[in-house]
Every structure is written in C-alpha cells, then in structure tokens.
Design a protein around this nucleic acid. Structure first.
Length: 561
RNA sequence: UGGGGCGUAGCCAAGCGGUAAGGCAACGGGUUUUGAUCCCGUGAUUCGCAGGUUCGAAUCCUGCCGCCCCAGCCA
C-alpha cells in the first residue's frame, strides 16, 4: 500500500529530518528512537495526528523505533478511558509500537530517587509557601522574582520534609519541592520551578501508592533519558522549557542525554484544535460527542469517513517547520478525495428524490443493467442495477426554466441515465401548491447501456434509482463546523459556529447494494461525494455520513451569479 | 535592551552565497456515460523593511518593523 504522496525514493525535507540525518551521519546517535507522549486526559485530534505521523514516520524512514508513552503525571485529570481511546486512535492511524508501550508512572520510583538526589546535591528544596505566595514571588515577565524564605533549608531538613510529603503527612498544596535554579532568570521556567506536588488522589495506574507526583518538567526529559530517546520532539510552546529540560539532564545521573526539538503546531481553517475548545464544544452540546463527524478528533474524522492514509498524507504535506500556520481545510479535503477516488466503489443514490415515470416503458417489467464499480480500479469489478418504469432522480437535476448551460433535465430535453437509457422529459406534473411532484418522460430503447447507435450526444448524465427496488435511507450532510476560517479571530469563537454544519436528509433513496454495508464502509455516490456508513446504520435503515463532496464546478459557476 | 520563536505567491513550503522547487487554492483549455477523475497551461524581476559586505545575497552583517509563545502546585 502506498501511503506517501512523494515520489518513490524522494526524501521528505524539513529541519527535523536534517538534524536526524546529521546525527546519524556523524554518529552522535547510532539509531533513532522517538516517542509519542500523549497525556491521557482527552481525545486525540488531527494536531496529534501530525505529531504521530512525524514521530512514527521518522522511525520508519530511518529504521528506528517510536515508543508510545503516556505522560500520566497528573492523576486528577487523567483517566483509563483516554488511555484506551488513544491507543485505538494511534493503531487506526496505521502505527504499531510493538512492546514499546510505556507510562511516565512506570518511572515514579526512579523519579523520586532523582528528586532526593537533587536535594542531596543542594539543588532542590521544600517550599512551604502557598501557591499564591509562590506566584507572587515569581516576579513578572519583566521583573525578576524573589527568593523563597525556605530556599536555604539544610539538606537534612529538605530530605526529612520530602520523605514526610511522600509518607502522606501533609495536606495537598501545603508544600512543594522546587528546583533551586535562578529566581532572576529571564526565562520564567527557570525561576525555581515546582517539580513535585502533593496530590491525595488515586492514580489510574499506580492507585494510592503515591500522594506526591512529579510534574511535566521533572518527568518528561528523565523519562526520555530512561528510554534512551534520541530525539524528543514537541511543539513550540515547550521551547521555553528546553533550558529546564537540559538542566535536569545535566544535573541528574541519567543514563542518556536526549535532546528536545520543537516544531509549530498544526492549525486548520474552519475548525478549532485546542483541547479546551474541543471540550467546550462537547460539553455545551454544540456537537454530539467526541466522535461527532464534524469534530477534528481522530474519532470524529474516522466516523466521518476520512481514511487514515489520507490523514497520513495530509500530515506529510503540511510540512514540519517552526512558523505559525493556518492550513486551509481545502488541503485536507483534497487528500481525502484523492485517496477515496482510488479506493471507494461507486454507487447511485438519490438524496432528494423526484419521481420519474417512463411512459413508454412497459408496466410491470424490469431488467438489470451493468455498472462499473470503480473506473479508477478495474479490479473492483461490476454490479447489476435494477431498472423499471418508475424511478427517482435528484430534484436538483431538473429545472423548469433552465439556463443555457444547464446540462440536466428540463421539459423537452434529453439526458442520459447513467448506465441505463436516454430519456426525454415530456411533462412536469404539479400539485395544487404548484410543486413539481412527478416527471413524465419517455425513453429510447435503442440507447440501452447509455450509448445511442445513431451517434447522437447528450450533454448530461444523471444518476437515478429504480423506485420499486430503492432502499430508503438517511444521509447526513456535513459542512465546516465554523463559518469563518479563523474561529474567534474577532470575538467569541462560539459565535462563529456554522448553523448549517449538519443537514439530515431522511428520505434518500439508495440502490439496493447500499443496504447492509458494515459501519465505516466508504463509497462514492456518483456526482455527489464520498460517503461512509455510520455506526447508527442498520440493514433496515442505512445511515450515511458525507465524508466530503465531489468537486463541483457547476456549483461554482452558480455561486458566481 | 525580560526570555524564546517566526516572517519566501491567497494557504502551506523548498532553498543553507551563484542568480526563486513543489503542493493546495484560483483561473484558462483538452479528454470524459460522474459538470468527478485525468491531462495541459497561467503566477514572485522577487524573498517583512532599510542599509552594508561581495563580481554575485532569500541566503552573510547591522538596524528597524510585524506576528506568535511564556508569569499552573496543567501538559
């Protein structure tokens, strides 16, 4: 399976890969070891996918390895449920970490010992100040902080206090362990950062074994060192933490010297990718859960029908740099179409049905016509479509007063029914309200299959489904979750939500082969778009999600008017 | 003069002193039983701005401008 958009043999080019090549070439590292380090406190989204594809992709490209490591240092926010969904998501994206599944919590004992080591070295101390006091004495971005009154405690007292913290003698928040670095540093992260805090809450994996927990800064780099990670890749907001990351590596007897590199996080137009905002969308029910097909979460994209290969391709196409970016949703959609065009079988489905009666087709008669499953893939074979006197076509494929360039049906005009016959519309039947309820047409028996023996041409080909054989179903049409490229750029992002992001069509008519497909199956409804079977689907009532519409140059022309 | 990062086409992005790759979008045209796919063609005398070094600068130097991140006992 080809998962790359780059030509065979062509190497991806970015600053991370430059560094990796140099390190491998110079022998600084003998083999590459990366890691993907999610915190199990939420669902993964496409921004994480970029990181996953980078870290696992690097390992694949350079014959290295990528570990999956949960950064589970904060028991008050983390849950087992997320640990499971994250693993599922990474696997679904197509990556395998083998036996290399780790948890920062696996290292709690080692981390604790290193904390004591720092105390013994006179490089860490117990601070009795409250959180507010610590904040107040940290200084501001432009002014240095003040030393804590507890900063010069003896090693013995620090050790005693730290052990009693561990033993559970103190209340949460009453004391913390701080690294003794420099309260006047221009980098706020270096102003005696807190590295251990008291948290009397059970941990999803270690239970009540601990009541003190290391924080991110004290756990991440050391975990990298324990695993002998060579390149610890994270996003730009951690660049300010790198001096601290390095400080621990230099001041602790760690078994390896990993290095941290930062790249800019992914931003995509017409959606949001921050955990906080995603949670709000779910909690305030602007969407129907984490896997709502409009969500940029991995589970949402999966339910929407986005193929993992398209996501991988997308992640590679956006590149890896340090500059702020806003990738147009159009690029993601392009990747999805490109993939699905090659893999999705074609089907006929009428979303907004309009009945058609073929007056000169014998009543009670029916026949089957051959249709190609995927013109892009001969291996996909063919199928048979039932045809009869009464059909449904798309309402949008008929116009009473059509403009000149309208190639579809109108009274007096002839079009081709895909894989079937040429038909000519004779009359549009209306009800009392003046709405068109039915089209009376005639067909040309000589055009069976869709070609006229006399060589005459028709401008349009439309899709259809035999009324007697059609399977009714529900089709969910999705549009951008937000109506503007940058939600919240001028005010509240909630106000930018697209009220029409979901349209449910409950009276769609599907060709028979569309019934009974497995949830997740992807098909193309010809002339309309790619659709995926929703988990809500049942053989009695199929439900399809529109993954992405086909490119539509006719709609584009219409929009210009 | 807090610290850190970034500025190449509408959106991304190569480029690493030798005279601006590529993709998406847009716009033309061709093929077509999906107004789809596919194919062909169209963009930067210029790389945030201003100086300087050099035979030669997007690439080196200096100054300026703009944008993003940091003051959780979150990650």
């Amino acid at each position: 399976m080809s998962t790359k958009s780059v030509a065979p043999g062509e190497e991806l080019q970015d600053f991370i890969r430059d560094i990796v090549r140099d390190d491998l070439a110079s022998g600084r590292v003998k083999s590459l070891l990366t890691r993907f380090p999610p915190e199990p406190n939420g669902y993964l989204h496409i921004g994480h996918a970029k990181s996953i594809v980078l870290n696992f992709g690097l390992a694949q490209e350079f014959g290295g390895q990528c570990n999956l490591r949960f950064d589970d240092t904060n028991p008050v926010r983390e849950e087992m449920e997320y640990i499971d969904s994250i693993q599922e998501n990474v696997r679904w994206l197509g990556y395998d970490w083998g036996d290399n599944l780790f948890y920062a919590s696996d290292y709690f004992q080692q981390l604790y010992e290193w904390a004591e080591y720092l105390i013994n070295e006179g490089k860490a101390y117990i601070d009795d100040q409250s959180a507010e006091e610590i904040r107040e004495t940290r200084g501001t971005l432009k002014q240095p902080g003040k030393n804590s009154p507890y900063r010069e405690r003896s090693v013995a007292e620090n050790l005693d206090l730290f052990r009693r913290m561990k033993a559970g003698e103190f209340a949460a928040g009453s004391r913390v362990l701080r690294a003794k670095i420099d309260m006047a540093s221009g980098n706020v992260n270096m102003r005696d950062p807190v590295i251990y805090r008291i948290l009397h809450s059970p941990h999803p994996r270690t239970g009540d074994a601990w009541c003190i927990y290391p924080n991110y800064d004290f756990a991440h780099g050391q975990s990298d060192a324990i695993e002998h990670i060579t390149h610890s890749i994270c996003t730009l907001e951690f660049a300010d933490h790198r001096p601290l990351y390095d400080w621990f590596i230099e001041n602790l007897p760690v078994p390896a010297r990993p290095r941290q590199y930062e790249f800019s996080r992914l931003n995509i137009s017409h959606t949001v990718l921050s955990k906080r905002r995603l949670i709000q969308l779910v909690e305030e029910e602007h969407v129907k859960g984490w896997d709502d097909p409009r969500m940029p979460t991995i589970s949402g994209l999966k339910r929407r029908g986005y193929p993992p290969a398209a996501l991988r391709d997308f992640a590679r196409r956006v590149g890896v740099t340090k500059s702020d970016n806003l990738i147009e949703m159009a690029l993601l959609e392009y990747c999805v179409r490109e993939r699905l065009n090659k893999t999705a079988e074609r089907r006929l489905a009428v979303l907004k049905p309009l009945k058609v009666v073929i007056e000169n087709y014998p009543e009670g008669e029916e026949e089957t016509l051959e249709a190609i499953n995927n013109p892009e893939d001969p291996q996909a074979g063919k199928r048979m479509l039932p045809f009869s006197r009464e059909l449904y076509i798309e309402r949008d494929d008929f116009m009473e007063d059509p403009p000149r360039k309208f190639f579809r049906l109108a009274v007096g005009r002839e079009v081709r029914l895909r894989y079937a016959y040429f038909i000519t519309c004779r009359e549009a039947v209306k009800n009392a309200e003046g709405e068109i309820t039915e089209l009376r047409c005639t067909y040309d028996p000589a055009t069976r299959g869709g070609d006229a023996p006399d060589g005459r041409k028709v401008k349009g080909t439309i899709h259809w489904v035999s009324a007697a054989h059609a399977v009714p179903g529900e089709v969910r049409l999705y549009d951008h979750l937000f109506k503007v490229p940058e939600p919240g750029s001028d005010g509240d992002y909630i106000a930018d939500l697209n009220p029409d992001s979901l349209t449910v069509l409950s009276e769609a008519m599907l060709e028979p082969s569309l019934a009974g497909l497995e949830p997740g199956s992807a098909v193309q409804f010809e002339r309309q778009g790619y659709f995926a079977v929703d988990p809500d689907s049942s053989p009695e009532k199929p439900v399809f999600n529109r993954t992405v519409a086909l490119r539509d140059s006719w709609a584009k022309i219409q929009a210009k008017k």
